[in-house]
């Protein structure tokens, strides 16, 4: 079981790490989509089947498409989709910040006495999740629906409206 977890971790970390370094935005985005698939595999490994497929459906199917459309709708300077890199000071500080956070979190994880329940993966049937969603968490479900609707409307207004098109030559 731990071998499976190690393979999933390798997939997630390698794809995210390479995506961090690539100049080409489209390749970066596609690698990040691979990371999302890896995270879905992690959910599947942990027994949260429904969440895993929701992750694939939402991230692999919807969010990735929105991101790729955005990549294609904006122009990234003369070099097509290659990104002009940030100043090197920022890259160094980003790596330092990331490393510091990683170190702090890893230390916290290592030092905290956790008592994980041993045993087989729990199973959350869809029916059970649905009952919980519609009874105990109905208010949160409604709030999530409202947020999604407002976000959709806001996204359409922002992307479609927004004053006259400024045309510039190629």
């Amino acid at each position: 079981m731990n071998a499976v977890l190690a393979a999933i971790a390798l997939l997630i970390l390698a794809s995210a790490g390479i995506a961090l370094t690539l100049r080409n935005i489209v390749r970066s985005v596609i690698l990040l989509v691979v990371t999302w698939f890896g995270i879905a595999a992690f959910y599947l490994w942990a027994g949260a089947e429904f969440v895993a497929f929701a992750q694939v459906l939402v991230y692999g199917g919807a969010v990735s498409m929105v991101v790729l459309f955005a990549v294609l709708l904006v122009r990234h300077g003369k070099a097509g989709v290659a990104e002009t890199p940030a100043p090197s000071g920022r890259i160094v500080s980003a790596l330092l910040a990331g490393g510091a956070i990683a170190g702090a979190l890893a230390g916290a994880v290592a030092l905290t006495p956790l008592a994980p329940a041993a045993g087989p993966a729990p199973f959350a049937p869809v029916r059970h999740i649905g009952v919980l969603l519609l009874n105990t968490h109905a208010a949160s479900l409604l709030a999530a629906g409202a947020i999604l609707t407002v976000a959709l409307l806001g996204g359409v207004v922002l992307a479609a409206g927004g004053g006259p098109e400024k045309e510039d030559g190629p």
């Binding site: 790490g17 002009t84 910040a97």
Partner: peptide
Amino acid sequence: QACLLLSSLLFSIGLAVAIARSSAIL
């Protein structure tokens, strides 16, 4: 702990991406 370590590493990579990249999309 392995799972938590994995997610904290992913979090740090995400943070580094958010700071280091200059494209708003990334």
